[in-house]
């Protein structure tokens, strides 16, 4: 039981495996006709979204509702609250309204950590994506999906030791990549980052990863998983890469590249996808693609996270 889930950086292997195991239990309940559990009855969960993200928001909403929590969704995007003090005001307002848990999505890196440590609220904080920092539940659902595909019914209690994962694309701006780097390596996987040098953070020598610029070389090494990151077309105007065509040619997972993957290799994408840019449509729809499983597993993983931070006594 934790107070908050702010990042995967501070999750231990055992804590991560335990969370994934709870998610397995949650997934089992979701195969029943009556999916709803009474676990968080009487608990109020606020989805505090300063940034648009329909899929993450409804995933958390579904997870909280299936645990019988009362769910309030607060979409701050587009309203007058968008500047610094608003986070404080909003948090204090939610505290006054009796929020037990706050699921926060924010465009500023560290917003979840600031919320959790500010004293503005006593609620448990779950980071649903903060700027270009982390998106821990996405990494957990990715790990869950990999484990499920690899080990099926024998998943419980296992980590990802021995698996090779390649993460491809805009690592610099990707909270998904950061959360996966920490979580997958903590779980024993080997992670390789592939990106143009302009889209790799500088000074990542201390990260437990290899980094390179050649996708074909990475594919030739026969990875177990290729995780494609969404690339934003706006990056072209900031000189990160010259054109969508050149990006797709160098870093897109085309059908030809996918054909060179091992037969059992997985292709992942956190969505939403730019079909034809970072991933070919046919690859996204192929049997090796886990895109829809990731969405489905997201609910079970978020149920596990909400259960972890909200059920039982808070330690602080």
């Amino acid at each position: 039981m934790s107070d908050h889930l702010l990042s995967t950086r501070d999750l231990s292997r055992d804590a991560a495996v335990a969370l994934l195991d709870v998610a397995e239990d949650m997934a089992d309940t979701q195969r029943r006709t009556v999916k709803k559990l009474p676990t968080l009855r009487g608990t109020t969960v606020v989805n505090l979204f300063f940034e648009d993200s329909t899929r993450t928001r409804i995933s958390f909403e579904a997870a909280a509702k299936r645990l019988s929590a009362d769910v309030i969704t607060f979409s701050a995007k587009g309203s007058s609250v968008s500047k610094g003090e608003s986070l404080q005001d909003t948090a204090q307002t939610l505290q006054a309204m009796g929020a037990d848990g706050i699921v926060i999505r924010h465009q500023a890196s560290g917003a979840a950590a600031v919320l959790a440590t500010s004293g503005w609220t006593r609620a448990a904080v779950v980071n649903a994506g903060d700027g270009t920092h982390e998106h821990p539940t996405q990494a957990l659902l990715d790990a869950f999906t990999i484990r499920k595909r690899r080990f099926g019914a024998g998943s419980r209690g296992r980590d990802l030791a021995g698996l090779d994962v390649v993460i491809v694309g805009d690592v610099l701006h990707s909270r998904v990549a950061r959360s996966n780097v920490w979580l997958l390596t903590t779980l024993g996987a080997t992670v390789r980052l592939v990106a143009p040098p302009t889209l790799l953070p500088t000074h990542i020598e201390s990260w437990p990863v290899e980094a390179g610029t050649d996708l074909d070389a990475a594919i030739a090494d026969g990875p177990d998983v290729v995780m494609m990151l969404r690339v934003q077309r706006e990056r072209m105007t900031e000189a990160f890469f010259p054109s969508a065509r050149e990006y797709a040619a160098l870093y897109g997972l085309s059908a030809a590249r996918a054909d060179r993957l091992r037969a059992d290799a997985l292709v992942m994408h956190p969505g939403p996808m730019n079909r034809g840019l970072e991933i070919a449509g046919s690859v996204a729809d192929s049997p090796r693609s886990t895109v829809l499983e990731q969405v489905e597993n997201g609910i079970a993983v978020r149920m596990a996270v909400l259960y972890d931070v909200l059920a039982g006594e808070r330690t602080a």
């Binding site: 890196s109 270009t132 920092h133 950061r178 500088t202 000074h203």
Partner: peptide, 18 residues
């Protein structure tokens, strides 16, 4: 730019000040 461009900014996801 938000923080010195280095190992910490890379990890924290803060735009680097090189």
């Amino acid at each position: 730019a938000q923080l010195h461009e280095g190992a910490v900014s890379a990890e924290l996801g803060l735009a680097g000040w090189p």
